[in-house]
């Protein structure tokens, strides 16, 4: 079997299913990290949103990627609140919008959604790289994806580069002092643990890369 360069969006729900499974599996871990510098609820918030997304998808018998990302966006935006609701909500909204009316997911479309998502989160949250937030994962991951494609890499290579950069970005938050969000209050005491949002963001990007890659090269 050869490697595909695109896949149909009409049964693209599997990307969101994988996200739901990833977040649920990491519920307690994410809360634990958040407890070190925040209020210890990041896993709870995320798991609640993603579980509601699964409920919505099942209730409406969702199959396609656009509908699945719409369910995820709505669950995050309408049901969970917090910081993660609007931040991840705006992020996934761009995937929903990018996929709507399209049949096929290829490297370019994914890159377009990813870039729009990052821009949206940046605009809403106002955090910059180095503030110890999920932007430290998101920004380098998007750059790595884009540059890999520009350098001639294929979809799978770009996704792999995104994952790797996301992990490095996440790890980079360990030595940072938080400048935004609840952890900022800690000052120097925030140094020494990775950021909870940066970690969930890495898990999310890696999950998308893995689930798509598995479909492209089964």
């Amino acid at each position: 079997m050869t490697t595909a360069v695109s896949l149909p969006l009409s049964d693209g729900r599997f990307i969101v299913d994988a996200l739901v499974a990833t977040i649920r599996a990491n519920r307690d871990y994410l809360s634990e990290i958040d407890a070190a510098t925040g209020d210890g609820d990041h896993g709870i918030n995320m798991a609640k949103g993603f579980a509601l997304c699964a409920e919505r998808m099942d209730a409406e018998d969702v199959r396609g990627a656009s509908d699945a990302f719409e369910a995820l966006t709505m669950a995050l935006m309408d049901d969970i609140g917090g910081s993660m609701g609007p931040l991840y909500g705006s992020f996934f909204l761009e995937f929903q919008l990018a996929f709507t009316g399209r049949d096929t997911l290829d490297a370019a479309l994914f890159g377009q959604a990813l870039a729009a998502g990052v821009a949206s989160v940046k605009e809403l949250g106002g955090a910059k790289v180095g503030d110890k937030t999920l932007m430290d994962t998101l920004v380098p991951a998007e750059v790595a994806y884009r540059e890999t494609l520009a350098g001639g890499g294929d979809f799978i290579e770009a996704l792999a580069a995104m994952s790797t950069a996301a992990e490095q970005g996440k790890d980079s938050t360990k030595d940072m002092q938080a400048r935004i969000g609840r952890a900022a209050r800690l000052g120097e005491r925030s140094i020494g643990t990775v950021d909870a949002g940066a970690t969930s963001c890495f898990l999310i990007l890696k999950s998308m890369a893995d689930s798509i890659t598995r479909r492209l090269a089964p």
Partner: peptide, 12 residues
Amino acid sequence: VGEIFSSPTAKS
């Protein structure tokens, strides 16, 4: 009204 110690949604 938000969840415990968590902002309400934009919709709320």
